[in-house]
Design a protein around this nucleic acid. Structure first.
Lengths: 368, 368
DNA sequence: TTGTAAGCGTTATCAA
DNA sequence: TTGATAACGCTTACAA
C-alpha cells in the first residue's frame, strides 16, 4: 500500500512510521472536473453538467462521470463554484453567545433544516459587543454568504452594518433580539405573554410586592417581558412602582446586587427575573439575608437553562421554544433565498412560550 | 437621500416606507478592484497590491486606493481570493456539541486567537454521531478550509475521513477527544490526574467503596480518567472491582439508572462521575433512595459545568482549562499553516486540570 | 513603481 | 446530447 522507500525512520518519532511517509509524500494533487474529463475523453462542461444532475446529459455518460469521480476521489471545489455563481451555499449565523442554552438550541434547529438543504453554517458570536457584531457581519459579507440568521448584541442602536447586507440583497432573518429597523422577517418569543404568565402566577401564589430584574429595556426582549410584568400587576390592581424594576440586572452578579437593594429598600416579597442567571443571583441575595426562597421570597426566571430543574428549590421559569424558532427562521431564510429578491418582508412570527412551575414560586409549598 | 419616486406606499405594510424603496431598488452593484482601478486610472493589479499592503507601491497611490475603496464601499471578495490563492482564511472547527460548557469555551478561546490573525471559523457539530462527523469533515474540505481544529464524536473508530484532510496537507489539530491514528498535534486535558485527584480526595474524605460512572472507555478522555481512578484506589490499597465501573453512563438519565444499580447491588458510598451531568443523575439516584448526598454518599463530577456551584450541595468537580486548550490549539494550527508542509508532528500537549472541592464530597461537613 | 497577462475551478451561454 | 469559450474577482510572475 505504501511505497517501501518511504517506510523508513520518522525524523520525529524515530520509528518506522506511516506518518514519516505521509510527510514526505507530495501533497495529493487535487482532482478537478478537468481530470475527470480527460480521463473520460469528454469536456469539463459535460462533467460539470453530469455532476450537477443536469438533465441534458445522457444517462450513460452521467454514470461514467459519477463512477470516475468516485474512483478519483473527486471533491467539488465550492469556492470556485461560489465565485462563478455569485452565491455561496454558506449561511451566516450570528448570536450573542453560542453557549446560552437558548441560542445553542436555535443553532441546532437551524442546522437541522439547513444541512439537508445543502447549506452549511458560518457561526459567529458577538459576545454582546457592538463592535464585534459589526466585524462579524463584515466577515459574513466578505464570505458572500447566501443569507444571514441573527440575534443582535444587547446594546445595538445603529444597524447600518446590517443594512449593508440587505441592500446587497442578502436576506437577513432576525430572531429573538430583533429590530424593525432591519427589513426582513422576525421570529420572536412571546415575551409579553411569558412575562405576564410569570407575574400572574406569582400573584396567584400570594405574593404582594413583586420586583423585576431585567436587561436593558431598549432590547425588545426585555421590553416585552417588562410589559407583561406591568400588565399582570395592572390587571390585579397592584401598584406599579418604577423603582421596583432594575435594568442591567441580567447576569448573576449584577442581579445579586440589585436584588439586595430590592429586598432592602423596597421590601419586595417576590422577584421576576428576565433570565435564569439573574434568578440565581436573586436567590443568593435572598439567602444572604437569611430569608427562604419561595416561602419568604418568590422567584421566577426566564429561559429554562439546564440548571433550572437541578437547583433546589427548582426554579419556576418560562421556557422558550428554541427549536421551533430555529426551524422557522431557517425555513424563512430558505424561502427568501429562493425568491432571491424582495427581502423587505416585514413579518413578525411569534412563537408561544410556556410557564414551568417549580418550587421557587410556591409560598409554603402551596400549590395554587 | 432616497429618490422621491420610490418613497411610495409599500405593498406590504401599506405605509410610506423606506423598505418599499429598498425592495424596488436594484441590488447594489458590487464594487470590485476593477471599479477602483477605473476610477483612479490605474490597473487592478496595482489596486490589489495596494490593498494587500504590498510594499512595491507608492505611498501616494496606496493612499488614493484606500480612500477610493472606502468611498465606494468596497468589500473584498474572499471567495475569489481563496480560489486564486488556493487557500482560504477559514478554519474549520468541529466539536461534538457547541452547548457544552467546555467546548463553547474552547471555541471562544480559539476565536480570540484566530480572529485577530485574520481567520474566521466555520463551526460544525457532530452531535456525537459518526456519520455527521464524516459529513461535516466533507463540508470543511469542500470549503477548502485552511485547517481544522477538532474533537471527535464519541464512538469514532474509523478516521479515514480525517486522513483525507491531512493527506491533502490540510493541518488538523485535535483536542480533548483525540486519537493517535490521526497525525498532527493533540491538546488534551490531564484527565489521568483529574481522575486521580478526584478519587484520592474521596478517599481522604473517608469514603470506602467508590464507584465510577463514565462514558465509553474507548474514548481517550474516559480511559484516562478511569486510569486515574484505578491508580488512586490502588495507591490506597483499595479494592478495584471492575463491576463498580459503568460505561455508557455519562448523561443524566443513563447515570441515574447506573447509579441506582451501584447503590443497590454494590453498596458503594461514593461515586466518581466522569461528567457533571452524570453527577446530577447520581445525586438523583441517591436522593431517590432516601440517602443524603455527601453525608451518606460522596459525589465528584468532571467539567465544572455552570450549574456545579449553583446546586446544593455544591458539586465537587474537576475543572478543565478550556481557555488554555483553545489558545494552544489555535496557536498550533497557525504554526502548522505557516509551515504549510509537515503536518505529521505527533506532539501531545497536556494541560493541567484543577480539583474544585465543594460540599458534595464532604462527609458530615468535615473539611479534610 | 506600475502594467500585462495568465490562471485558480467552476458554470453558463452559445453553437454544433 | 455535447463541445468551445468566456467569465466570476482576485493574485502574481514577468515585463516595462
Amino acid at each position: 500500500m505504501y511505497e517501501k522507500r518511504w517506510l523508513k525512520n520518522c525524523v520525529f518519532c524515530a520509528n518506522v512510521c506511516i506518518f514519516a511517509f505521509e510527510s514526505y509524500k507530495q501533497p495529493m494533487k487535487r482532482i478537478t472536473i478537468i481530470d475527470i474529463a480527460e480521463a473520460l475523453n469528454i469536456t469539463p462542461s459535460t462533467v460539470s453538467r453530469a455532476l450537477a444532475g443536469n438533465l441534458r446529459v445522457s444517462e450513460s455518460t452521467r454514470r461514467r462521470v459519477m463512477d470516475k469521480a468516485r474512483e478519483l476521489g473527486y471533491q467539488p471545489n465550492i469556492v470556485a463554484a461560489s465565485l462563478r455563481k455569485g452565491k455561496s451555499d454558506t449561511i451566516g449565523m450570528m448570536v450573542p453567545r453560542i453557549n446560552r442554552h437558548f441560542f445553542s438550541h436555535v443553532i441546532s434547529a437551524v442546522e437541522e433544516v439547513l444541512n439537508p438543504a445543502g447549506y452549511n453554517l458560518l457561526i459567529c458570536q458577538s459576545h454582546e459587543r457592538v463592535l464585534r457584531e459589526e466585524q462579524a457581519i463584515n466577515v459574513l459579507l466578505k464570505n458572500r454568504v447566501a443569507g444571514i440568521i441573527m440575534s443582535h448584541a444587547m446594546e445595538m442602536s445603529d444597524f447600518s452594518h446590517i443594512l449593508k447586507a440587505t441592500s446587497e440583497n442578502i436576506p437577513v432573518v432576525q430572531f429573538d433580539r430583533v429590530t424593525k429597523q432591519v427589513p426582513g422577517p422576525r421570529i420572536i418569543n412571546d415575551n409579553f405573554s411569558g412575562g405576564y404568565m410569570a407575574v400572574k402566577h406569582l400573584i396567584r401564589s400570594g405574593y404582594k410586592r413583586i420586583g423585576h430584574l431585567t436587561g436593558s429595556l431598549s432590547v425588545n426582549v426585555y421590553q416585552d417581558r417588562f410589559r407583561g410584568y406591568k400588565y399582570a400587576l395592572d390587571e390585579a390592581s397592584m401598584l406599579i412602582d418604577a423603582t421596583h424594576t432594575y435594568q442591567g440586572a441580567i447576569t448573576r452578579d449584577t442581579a445579586l446586587n440589585c436584588a439586595r437593594e430590592l429586598l432592602e429598600k423596597h421590601q419586595v416579597d417576590a422577584i421576576f427575573c428576565a433570565g435564569d442567571y439573574a434568578a440565581i443571583g436573586a436567590m443568593e441575595a435572598i439567602r444572604e439575608k437569611g430569608l427562604k426562597v419561595a416561602d419568604d421570597i418568590g422567584v421566577v426566571g426566564f429561559a429554562n437553562e439546564p440548571f433550572a430543574d437541578i437547583i433546589s428549590p427548582g426554579l419556576t421559569t418560562v421556557e422558550q421554544n428554541a427549536y421551533e424558532i430555529g426551524i422557522r427562521a431557517a425555513n424563512s431564510l430558505i424561502q427568501l433565498i429562493s425568491r432571491s429578491g424582495y427581502t423587505a418582508i416585514q413579518t413578525e412570527d411569534v412563537v408561544p412560550v410556556r410557564l414551568l412551575v417549580r418550587d421557587s414560586s410556591m409560598k409554603n409549598g402551596s400549590n395554587v
